[in-house]
Design a protein around this nucleic acid. Structure first.
Lengths: 230, 230
DNA sequence: CCGTCGCTTTGACCTTCGTCAAACCACCTC
DNA sequence: GAGGTGGTTTGACGAAGGTCAAAGCGACGG
């Protein structure tokens, strides 16, 4: 019952992969899991190194990034609470996983985790469905990276953040205020731009009255329609 | 035994998802499957429409493409023989699937196919592993689309094609000759460029002696190292 | 053999975005 | 309050690649 006890207080108990397990099954998994915290900038996994762990993200945001041989970097995915981290059955890690803010994880050693996965069809199915969803998202972002202008990328990104921040609350068109979990540089990495271009486009959107910027992190969406037009 | 008979002659019997099924199980699936041919340019699925089918690709090449509201297009994936087509459990199709050349498919109605999938853990696992691999590939291409120059994209693409064409034969560094399955326009769609840029970069690579072009389709890799340097 | 059709190549020009450089700003420590 | 430090903004400039336009090339049908 210890496991059930620990997990029952878990913020993502019914949204993460674990949602597919009952309390008894959870014991097995919990015996493997270990809580871990990361602070801003710390990295959990390095691309190309041996892939030793999988994890559930409990709180905070992680970035998944790829790097060219000569050092150009691209963020290829953002992970939010309840998302799954890592790639079962892969000997080497594909991408670098880094904390964007302070982060809490529930970490499992990869090999034993694979065994649990193989023994629990429902969990495996849930992972399959999430992977299919992630694949769709990645492909959607390929379109964005390759074909949208800097302005369009930014507008789309802001709308995305806004929706995510206010949970799944109905998107009333009233102004929304929130703080970025990312710096300009990180936004640039996500959108395939440079830091200067991000800054310039934000200034431009502000000048046009679509948004308002307060300090480096604060933002409020003033005219959602104007953003959606891009 | 009819099913086993049909499938046993299948070119991808032991490479497609079906590889996870024994001859008896294959009967179930075969009862659902239907051969279908497409000719160059025909499309199997339209993005946004109801998702009615899944399929195994038997021969030929398919492209998966996404389109912006205003008509800009991006190819987000290429599918080769033995690859799986479609997204189980999705009500709507995410992307448009179009034949690049003449194509043979083994098509299943989605809903019944999902049931088979749910009843065959090994097949579900194989699909999961393939989806994870596809996700990695998609993310790798995000890096390429966002951060590589036109020249680098093309060089990488040519090397890729060359490797794929000569099967998994050891990549001797001798010159390789083959035909593109794609037009310049399609290459542009894949690489996130315009047709003119593709043409110009190919001409440049030819001028530098890295490749040779014969007619619109023929190509030979003359200096592999030169391409790899990009 | 000629004309047409689809695709490719090449050129001239222009826009967008990246590069380099210099302030600027907020926040923190001393 | 002085001085750092890390992130941000702004400007001037240049290069890569997109756009528009015209010609070239090869295959096919008449």
């Amino acid at each position: 019952m210890i496991a059930a006890h620990i997990c029952s207080g878990c913020a993502v108990r019914d949204r993460a992969l674990c949602a597919s397990l009952d309390d008894v099954e959870l014991d097995t998994l919990n015996a493997l899991g270990q809580r871990r915290r990361l602070t801003r900038g710390q990295t959990l996994v390095w691309a190309g190194e041996e892939s030793l762990v999988c994890a559930n993200l409990l709180s905070g945001v992680l970035k998944l990034s790829a790097v060219t041989p000569d050092g150009r970097e691209q963020v290829v995915g953002l992970l939010y609470p309840a998302d799954f981290v890592g790639r079962p059955w892969a000997e080497l890690a594909d991408f670098t996983v880094t904390a964007l803010g302070d982060v809490e994880l529930c970490v499992f050693p990869r090999k034993p985790f694979e065994r649990v996965l193989e023994d629990h069809v429902r969990m495996e199915r849930l992972l399959l469905q999430r992977t299919l969803a992630a694949l769709e998202e990645a492909r959607g972002r390929m379109l964005a990276l390759a074909r949208l202008s800097a302005r369009e990328k930014l507008a789309g990104f802001l709308l995305d953040m806004a929706d995510r921040v206010q949970g799944c609350r109905a998107t009333a068109s009233g102004p929304v205020t929130f703080d970025f979990p990312l710096t300009r540089g990180e936004m640039a990495e996500v959108l395939g731009l440079t830091i200067e271009t991000v800054s310039r486009q934000l200034s431009r959107l502000k000048a046009e009255g679509a948004i308002n910027l307060m300090g480096a992190r604060g933002i409020t969406i003033r005219d959602r329609a104007l953003l959606e037009a891009a």
